[in-house]
Amino acid sequence: MAAEDFNPRILGFLCHWCCYSAADAAGVSRYQYPSNIRVIRVMCTGRIDLRFILEAFKSGADGVFTGG
């Protein structure tokens, strides 16, 4: 598959206090980025259980992003 055709589905786990806030702030500043990510908000990246990441890959995610 050519690199330009690759349109990955990425699941993000974002910490409410930092990365999720930053993603909100990116919006306020209208920073543009590709729309491949879908976000699940958690209160801390410490909440992320390994099972969540495995389940995401099992469910077809091409990548998992954690931000905290």
Partner: peptide, 21 residues
């Protein structure tokens, strides 16, 4: 569901992909 800060505002050039998201 955060469809402004993390969607419409940051995917302004790709309305269809933003709608899907």
């Amino acid at each position: 569901a955060n469809i402004r800060n993390q969607c419409s505002w940051v995917h302004a050039q790709t309305p269809e992909a933003a709608t899907e998201k």
